[in-house]
Amino acid sequence: PDLGLTQLFADPNLIENLKKNPKTSEMMKDPQLVAKLIGYKQNPQAIGQDLFTDPRLMTIMATLMGVDL
């Protein structure tokens, strides 16, 4: 199971919303991170391994779920 990750990354406004959010806007200036996020739309399971190697993803996930870290 993808634990709902498919829906989190399926939002067509995902990148724009993250660019507008004060907690994630600075991160979204990294083209490699943006490319990763776009890739998760097609393969949400890929985030599982990346969560352990890129701490920014935890902040992004929390933001998408509405959790304040």
Rank of each mutant, 00 (worst) to 15 (best):
E26G: 08
L18D: 00
D11N: 08
L64P: 00
P31Q: 11
N21C: 04
K19R: 15
K19N: 10
Q42E: 15
M28C: 03
S25Y: 08
K20R: 13
P22C: 05
L64A: 05
D2P: 15
T53N: 14
K36F: 07
M28L: 08
D68A: 04
M65C: 07
I60L: 06
R56Y: 05
L18F: 02
D68Y: 01
I47D: 05
A35Q: 13
L57G: 01
E26Y: 04
V67N: 12
E16P: 06
D68R: 01
L33F: 11
V67Q: 12
L37T: 00
M27P: 01
K20H: 10
D30P: 00
L37N: 00
L8R: 03
P31Y: 05
P1Q: 14
L69D: 15
D30T: 01
T24D: 00
Q42P: 03
T6G: 14
Q7R: 07
D2H: 13
K29A: 09
I38F: 07
L64D: 00
L3I: 14
L14D: 01
F9R: 02
S25L: 10
T6Y: 09
D54C: 02
S25N: 15
L18V: 01
K29G: 06
T24C: 04
V34T: 05
L33D: 00
P22W: 04
L57I: 13
Q45N: 12
K41A: 14
L8F: 12
A35M: 10
G48P: 10
I60K: 00
K41D: 03
N21I: 04
R56A: 10
L5G: 07
K19M: 14
M58S: 11
T63R: 02
G39S: 15
G48W: 15
N43A: 05
D2M: 15
Q42R: 13
Q42D: 14
P12I: 06
P12H: 07
L57K: 00
Q7G: 14
D2T: 09
N43M: 04
L69C: 08
L18W: 02
P1W: 02
A62Y: 07
D68C: 04
G4H: 06
M65Q: 07
P1A: 11
E16F: 07
I15V: 09
K29S: 10
K36V: 09
G39L: 06
K41P: 04
D54Q: 01
V67S: 12
L64C: 02
G4E: 13
R56G: 05
N13A: 14
T53P: 02
N21H: 07
L69F: 06
L37E: 00
T53K: 11
A46Y: 11
N21F: 06
K20I: 08
Q7K: 15
T63W: 05
K29I: 03
K19I: 09
K23F: 07
T63E: 07
P55H: 10
D50Y: 03
K29M: 09
Q49W: 06
T6S: 10
G66A: 08
A62G: 11
K41M: 15
Q45D: 14
L64N: 02
P1C: 09
L3A: 14
T59E: 10
M65A: 12
A46P: 06
G48Y: 15
T6K: 11
I15G: 01
Q42M: 10
L57W: 08
A46D: 12
I47A: 11
N13I: 04
I15L: 10
Y40H: 03
D68M: 03
V67I: 15
P55Q: 06
T59Q: 10
L64M: 09
P31L: 08
G66D: 09
N21D: 10
I60Y: 01
G66N: 12
A10M: 12
M27H: 05
M28G: 01
L3E: 08
P44N: 04
